[in-house]
Nucleic acid binder design. Structure first.
Lengths: 344, 344
DNA sequence: TTGAAAGCGCTAACAA
DNA sequence: TTGTTAGCGCTTTCAA
C-alpha cells in the first residue's frame, strides 16, 4: 500500500501517458497537446491527485518555505510583521515559518535546523542587533534584516525610519513648549532604541534645549517596565514636564504610574508613545503617538526576500518606511509647572 | 557542483564506510562500533555536514512540521496560542507553521497546500466553528481543535472552560448586587461566545435575576466594536449597572464610550472583561477580568497533536482549562443608580 | 556490525 | 509533443 494515496504514476497510468507528461501538465508547461492535457486533468480529478510537495522540494532543491525569526511571536509589533510577511509570502506562492528566537543561542539553533538543513529557502530576521544574533547569521543564504538601519553589504534591510520618528515625537513636545523631557527607552542594545534616541537628541539640539534638561530611563518595551521606570523617574528628583516613551506599552505604564502619583495627563505631564497600537486611541487619555505599520515592514521584508531567493545576484536594497505623528489627548501645552519631586 | 554542499556520501567516503553507516550514526542507531562512530563523527565535523531535512522527510514520509491555522496571527489570544504551540512543538523536535485563515475559503486552500500536499504532519485549528471551516477539515489526518467545547468523535480538542468563565464573571457582578447586566458578546456564530453567554445565563438564572433585565450587544472582539456597541447600548434606553464584556479589548472600548458619555467606571457602571491581556492591569481603571492563558492552550494543543501524529490510534481526548477571576478596580458595588437613558 | 540495493515522488536532461 | 533515463539525499529492507 502506497504511503501517499496517489502518485504521479497512477495518474499517468490512468491517462495512458508517461508520468513525465503528467509532471508537465502540473507545472503548466507549454509543450502539451490540449487533448493530452485534458486527459491528464481528468485523471487527476478522478483520482483526487495532489502533488507531494516534499518530493517537489527534493527534486527542485528549493522548498518554497521562508523562515522568520523574531524575539517573540506575541508582541503586537512582531505579530503584525509576521502576519504581513506571511500574507506577502503566500501571495507569491511561499509559506512562512515563524519562530521565536529570544536569545542568540536559540537563534543559532534555529539557523542550524531550518537553514543549514535546507528546510527553508531564506530567512527574515527581526532585530538582529538586539544581541549578537547577527553574528550567527548564515553566510551565502538569502536573508533580510528587518528593523535595521545600518546598511549591510550583503543583506537587504527594511526598517521604520526610527530616527525620524524620534525626531517627530520630540518636535511635537517642543512645539508644546516642553523643554524638560524624560525618555523611556527600550533596551539600549537595540538599534531602534538608539535611533529613536538620536532623533530625539537632534530635535532637542536644533531647538537649543540643554542636554542636561533631559533624562533617559531604560525599559524593556513591556508595560511593567514603563510603569517601573516612571516610578523611578518620579523618585529621582528630575524635573520634567513630558515623557517620551519609545513604545505605547511603556507609555501606558507611565500614565498608570503618573496617575498613581496623583498627576494628571496631560495637564501635569504630557506623554507621547510610539507604535500606535490598536488600543492607543481608547485608553484614558487617548494616546498621542508615532505611528508605524509593522505589517507593512513584514510585507516588504517578504518581498525583498523572495526577490533575492529567486534572483540571488540582485543588488542589495536598504529601505526605510516613514513614521507619522498621531495627535490625541495625552499631550498638551506646557503649563509652567513641571513636576519636581525631591530626591529621596 | 553538488546542489547541497556535503552529502551523506561525502562523509561516508571520508570516513571510509558506506553511506548507510553514516545514516546509522546520524540517527543514533545502536549497532555501530564506537570506533566507527568516532570516525564518522569526525568526518561530519571536518566536512561541516548537515543532514538535508527534505531528503529525510522524503524517505520517511513525515516532515516533522505541524500547521496551525487561526483567524489571524496578531490578536493577543491567537499570538499567545501560537507561541505556546510553537514552543511545545520545538521542544519535541517539530516546527510549527502558523497561517492566518480568516475565512472558510482561505482555510480550504491552506488545507490543500499544506496538508494534502503533505508538507505538514498534522494540523491545529483555532476556532473551527466560527464559520464553516470545520466542514473543510481533512479526514484521516492528525488534527486538534483548539477553542472548541463540543466533543468531536474524531479529533482531540482543547479549550478554555468558557462557560465557567462566563459564570464566574456574572457571579462576580451579582455578588456586587448588580442585576441589570449588559453583555458585549463576540460574534454569535462563535462557540466561545455562546458558551460564555450560557455561563452568564446560568448564573443569572441561579440568582433569580429576571432575564428581561439583561441585554446583549454583539461585537467582533475589537476595541472599536466594544466602543460602538456601548454607544448603542447607551442610546437604546436599556437600564444597566454593569457591562460584562466577552473580551478585554471590547471592555476597554466600553470604558472609553462610557467616559465619553460622562459616566464613571466603576462608580456609575461596573465593567468586567475577559482574557486578562497584559495591558488590563494598567488601563484606567485597572480592569477586573477573567483570566485565560492561551499560551497554555497552545502548548496542550501541540502536545495532543504530536501524540496523535506519533500514535494515530490513541483514544480521542477532550480537555478544558480553568478560568479565573481577577478582581481589579473596574467593578464595584451597585450604587442604586443604574444608568437610564431615554431611547432616542 | 556493516554494506548493497531499492525506493520515497518528483523534476530535469536527453532522446525519440 | 512525448517518453525514457537519471538522479535529488536520505532511509529501509535484506544480505553478508
Amino acid at each position: 500500500m502506497p504511503r501517499s494515496r496517489v502518485t504521479i504514476r497512477d495518474v499517468a497510468a490512468l491517462a495512458g501517458v508517461s508520468h513525465q507528461t503528467v509532471s508537465r501538465v502540473i507545472n503548466g508547461h507549454e509543450r502539451v497537446t490540449p487533448e493530452t492535457r485534458q486527459r491528464v486533468m481528468r485523471a487527476i480529478d478522478d483520482l483526487g491527485y495532489r502533488p507531494n510537495e516534499v518530493a517537489r522540494s527534493m527534486a527542485q532543491g528549493r522548498t518554497r518555505l521562508l523562515a522568520c525569526f523574531s524575539p517573540n511571536l506575541i508582541d503586537y509589533t512582531f505579530a503584525s510583521l509576521i502576519e504581513g510577511a506571511e500574507q506577502m509570502a503566500r501571495q507569491q506562492g511561499y509559506f512562512l515559518l515563524s519562530a521565536s528566537a529570544p536569545d542568540e543561542e536559540t537563534f543559532a539553533c534555529l539557523v542550524e535546523e531550518l537553514i543549514h538543513s535546507r528546510r527553508a529557502d531564506g530567512l527574515i530576521v527581526f532585530n538582529p542587533y538586539s544581541d549578537g544574533r547577527y553574528t550567527r547569521m548564515p553566510k551565502g543564504v538569502p536573508g533580510v534584516y528587518a528593523g535595521v538601519h545600518t546598511p549591510t553589504e550583503e543583506l537587504d534591510t527594511i526598517s521604520l525610519d526610527d530616527k525620524e520618528g524620534g525626531r517627530i515625537a520630540a518636535q511635537h513636545l517642543l512645539s508644546l513648549d516642553h523643554r524638560r523631557i524624560a525618555c523611556l527607552t527600550g533596551p539600549i542594545t537595540e538599534e531602534c532604541t538608539r535611533e529613536r534616541l538620536a532623533g530625539l537628541a537632534n530635535a532637542l539640539g536644533d531647538a537649543g534645549a540643554r542636554s542636561e534638561d533631559s533624562v533617559n530611563f531604560e525599559g524593556d518595551w513591556s508595560v511593567e517596565s514603563g510603569y517601573r521606570a516612571t516610578q523611578m523617574l518620579l523618585r529621582s528628583g528630575h524635573e520634567f514636564s513630558a515623557i517620551c516613551a519609545q513604545n505605547d506599552r511603556m507609555a501606558i505604564g507611565a500614565i498608570h504610574a503618573l496617575r498613581e502619583a496623583g498627576l494628571h495627563v496631560p495637564q501635569d505631564v504630557s506623554v507621547i508613545g510610539f507604535d500606535d497600537i490598536p488600543l492607543a486611541a481608547y485608553i484614558n487619555p487617548p494616546l498621542t503617538t508615532i505611528r508605524q505599520v509593522p505589517y507593512d515592514i513584514g510585507q516588504v521584508a517578504a518581498r525583498l526576500l523572495i526577490e533575492r531567493v529567486e534572483q540571488p545576484t540582485r543588488a542589495v536594497q536598504h529601505l526605510l518606511l516613514p513614521a507619522k505623528l498621531i495627535v490625541r489627548e495625552s499631550t498638551a501645552v506646557y503649563q509652567h509647572r513641571a513636576v519636581k519631586n525631591e530626591p529621596r
